[in-house]
Amino acid sequence: MPWFVKIERGIVEKKTFDQYVPAHKAYVKHLIAKGHKAKTGYWGELGGGMLLFEANSLEEAKKIVIQDPLIENKCVEYEIHEWRIVVE
């Protein structure tokens, strides 16, 4: 399966953002259980993060991303890209 990355930048106050973090983490655990090998994290400097995961296609990856509670609740702006690994 191809890998995809959602790169995001927070667009709401931290207090608002933080209330959706538990749901985001639960969603990522759900993706892991479904075999998407998802990993999530944030940048050392404030303001953004990344979700890395496998999906069958860009279309499936887009469907996965829009169901993320951080997206559903308009906490972040994001880009999605297919990540092509050249060395493992």
Rank of each mutant, 00 (worst) to 15 (best):
M1R: 10
W3K: 07
F4E: 12
F4W: 10
V5G: 12
K6M: 04
K6T: 04
E8F: 04
R9I: 00
V12R: 03
V12Q: 02
E13S: 12
E13A: 14
E13Q: 13
K14A: 05
K14P: 03
K14E: 13
K15M: 15
K15L: 08
F17M: 03
D18K: 01
D18R: 09
Q19K: 08
Q19E: 04
Q19H: 04
Y20W: 05
Y20F: 11
Y20T: 07
Y20G: 01
P22G: 04
P22S: 12
V28Y: 15
K29Q: 10
H30E: 01
H30T: 08
H30N: 00
I32S: 04
A33H: 02
G35A: 14
G35Y: 02
G35K: 09
K37L: 15
K37D: 15
A38G: 14
K39D: 00
T40Y: 14
T40I: 10
T40E: 12
G41F: 12
W43N: 10
G44K: 14
G44N: 01
E45R: 14
E45M: 13
L46D: 01
L46P: 02
L46Y: 00
L46E: 05
G48H: 15
G48D: 13
G48I: 15
M50I: 09
L51E: 12
L51R: 11
L52T: 08
F53M: 05
E54R: 06
A55V: 05
N56T: 12
S57P: 11
S57I: 15
L58Q: 07
L58I: 13
E59V: 06
E60L: 03
E60A: 03
K63Q: 01
K63D: 07
K63Y: 03
I64Y: 08
V65Y: 13
I66C: 12
Q67A: 04
Q67E: 06
Q67N: 09
D68S: 05
D68H: 08
D68I: 02
P69T: 09
P69L: 13
I71D: 09
E72H: 07
N73L: 08
C75D: 01
Y78M: 04
Y78C: 06
Y78S: 11
E79C: 09
E79N: 11
E79S: 08
I80L: 11
I80R: 05
I80V: 11
W83F: 07
W83Q: 14
R84K: 13
V86T: 15
V87P: 03
